[in-house]
Design a protein around this nucleic acid. Structure first.
Lengths: 112, 112
DNA sequence: TGTTATACCTAACGCCGCTGGGTATCATAC
DNA sequence: GTATGATACCCAGCGGCGTTAGGTATAACA
């Protein structure tokens, strides 16, 4: 079980990264996250949909209703130009924190 | 400027990691974080102290008042046994998310 | 016909960092 | 000697966001 804070921090960059590979929709995104994390990450719908709406509101992603192969209506999301830029910002921020964290961890390893 | 969510997610593991290297106190911790991150991370006191109190409440860290070399009273914190375990849990969770994120990012790189 | 999977949405709650304060001591400068 | 800045601690109120726990609707299957 991943802590709430980590989920909060990783949701936006992960979503943007997934949509950067091509358009997708809510249900499929939840499955992809589960697969990619080897089952460690289990996003809930109640968490994902508000995030999608928020990102759309921020103009980082765009949506359009389409009919899936199974005859069901799906709301497909894709990255906007601003979303692509935002993804890069997210990646840099993540790297900054990750590097700082590993630097401290490695220092500990040296002393112990 | 690092996003609020990322700060929230990294505060606890970073604090535990710093104290794992030896006891320290609020003001010095803020400086260490600033140095370690190359100035990218700037913790505020209003953010740090409540976190320290919370971690102490969770028995992950222990505190004791001491007199610093400069004649000032300082509240020194150190890791408890439970805190050491918690640090390992935090590290694992961080790795899980980091690996998932980089996996998705690399996939994107392959397709583009 | 009813149950499961798909697919979307929302309201109330709680946690937690952020902002913007406050208090006190010590060193330095004027 | 007194003002300023650095050190060092603390707290209240606010807002954002995941969580929990619901709801609606359609297609497939039994």
């Amino acid at each position: 079980m991943i802590s709430k804070e980590l989920v909060a921090a990783s949701t936006k960059p992960m979503l943007l990264a997934i949509l950067a590979k091509g358009e997708s929709y809510g249900y499929a995104i939840i499955e992809e996250v589960r697969d990619r994390s080897g089952g460690e990450l289990e996003w809930s719908e109640g968490m994902l949909y508000p995030v999608l709406h928020r990102l759309e509101n921020e103009k980082l992603i765009l949506s359009s209703w389409k009919l899936g192969e199974n005859g069901r209506k799906r709301k497909y999301y894709r990255l906007s130009a601003a979303g692509t830029k935002a993804l890069e910002v997210e990646r840099k921020q993540w790297s900054t924190i990750h590097n700082t964290l590993t630097a401290i961890w490695e220092t500990k390893a040296c002393l112990s």
